[in-house]
Design a protein around this nucleic acid. Structure first.
Lengths: 253, 253
DNA sequence: TACGCAAAGTTGTCTGACAAGCAGATCAAT
DNA sequence: ATTGATCTGCTTGTCAGACAACTTTGCGTA
């Protein structure tokens, strides 16, 4: 069955206006902190109604490029890091290749996070991981749905890194690809032993992090992500194996 | 001089509506592909004008959570990966700690990208890197601004990975933190030898990638990112050193 | 010079109208 | 029975106007 592509719709005026202003900002034509032209001016210049301009500015606000103050105007956001980021182009299909690329990025970040979690985790972090692990153990034993516990386990690892940007990224990707955990945890996954295999990987990952072994944690996470990819039919041969090395763990303290 | 916090403004109605609907989506109350209530219904339910609802939906569209079709309605986006991601909370100040966290994430991704670029790069990729390198060489010689060439060099490396998600991420973060390159390339940076030092790091990174050495590329990128962080006053002692190991490079082919 | 106030300007919200497109039902032709 | 055409009702996209809430500017007074 060939992938049926979505029929393209004409862009809305508000999207066109929004993209144009975004380009001004990205190209540096409008610098951070600078005030945008008034809605009245933009309406006249673009030849559209004020409502269209307002919707365009709403888009820019949602994307973090612009902040507005009633009575004062709309300003280019000056704080770096506020703009939003998308893993894909709007026109990208939800195909296997796109998913594989994102999964590779996820692999890079999650293996690094595991190593960091091993060296930075607190008792509270470990308790959080343990709790999620227990829920997954129960799910395996009962043939039940462990996807949420699986997600929570990964977020707990990210939390142990103490880096909010990492937490936000891992949480975001985990949610966007929540469906990727279904083949592991659905009835078929249980019957085929995939849930049990995933759980063994989780247990190993947890042991490494609890033991404070950054190298072991990295390797356990790497293995888990590779196996997870395999369960989804994603090829991983060309992924960076993130080499395992003799390691001086005292240097991490 | 203490950081002066922005005075909080009341949320706009459209933002409140938008955040509420986003929560429905994130919590799974509204599943991917499902049709949102009509604008008329949302307007009545939230007790706001239709214009506010439209602005809220414009926000959700900008964030990739929703796609609308004229005459049909607005639908929860079914394709994973379309939603947008922000590295920070809207209320986060643009302080050094936030920047450091983001820099660490960038470090993780860019060091991995360098290793991948070394094993996957094409002649065209190398030409692109060389071109950017040459522009930076000229900037060092002339005491000129090399920030754009610096950015282009990093994007060329990301491009060599062949992973569009990596390219998008590195390009995005590079643009958001464009200002982080100024201390290297401004007059003071030239006078203090920072531009020259950065360029030496770039040259080493390029040599490793050109030679196809994933381990050497990783180490060169790691060193460059750590030095770049130091130039910005960011502490890197607790960063994952991404160990260098004896490596079987045949396994990468 | 500093403060208070008014006026002008700007964003936020509401309302109403019409255009453009979609979904579903119905009917006719094959 | 299936396909194509047409119609109707509904929904989103855009426009215009009005008013509320807030900000900025300019002027007058102490």
């Amino acid at each position: 069955m060939p992938q049926i592509a979505r029929l393209a719709r004409p862009s809305q005026l508000s999207e066109t206006v929004s993209k144009t202003i975004e380009q001004w900002i990205v190209d540096g034509v409008m610098a951070p902190g600078v005030k945008l032209p008034t809605e009245k001016t933009l309406s006249a210049e673009f030849g559209v109604s004020r409502a269209v301009v307002r919707e365009a500015i709403s888009r820019l606000k949602a994307e973090g490029y612009v902040a507005s103050r009633q009575g004062a105007g709309a300003f280019v956001e000056a704080r770096p890091g506020q703009a939003s980021f998308r893993l894909t182009e709007a026109a990208d299909p939800a195909d296997a290749e796109t998913t594989a690329h994102i999964f590779e990025l996820r692999y890079i970040v999650e293996t690094a996070a595991a190593a960091l979690a091993a060296s930075r985790r607190s008792d509270a972090d470990l308790a959080r991981m343990r709790e999620a692990l227990l829920r997954m153990r129960t799910a395996v034993a009962d043939g039940a749905d462990g996807t949420q516990a699986d997600d929570d386990f990964h977020v707990a690892i990210a939390t142990a890194t103490g880096n909010p940007a990492l937490v936000r990224f891992i949480r975001f990707v985990g949610h966007q690809f929540f469906a990727s955990r279904l083949p592991t945890w659905n009835a078929e996954g249980h019957a085929a032993g995939r849930a049990e295999a995933a759980q063994a990987e989780h247990e190993r990952l947890f042991e490494a992090i609890a033991a404070g072994g950054a190298v072991a944690a990295r390797e356990a996470a790497r293995n888990h992500m590779v196996e997870a990819a395999r369960r989804l039919g994603i090829h991983t041969d060309h992924w960076d194996p993130a080499p395992v090395a003799p390691w001086d763990e005292e240097a991490l303290s």
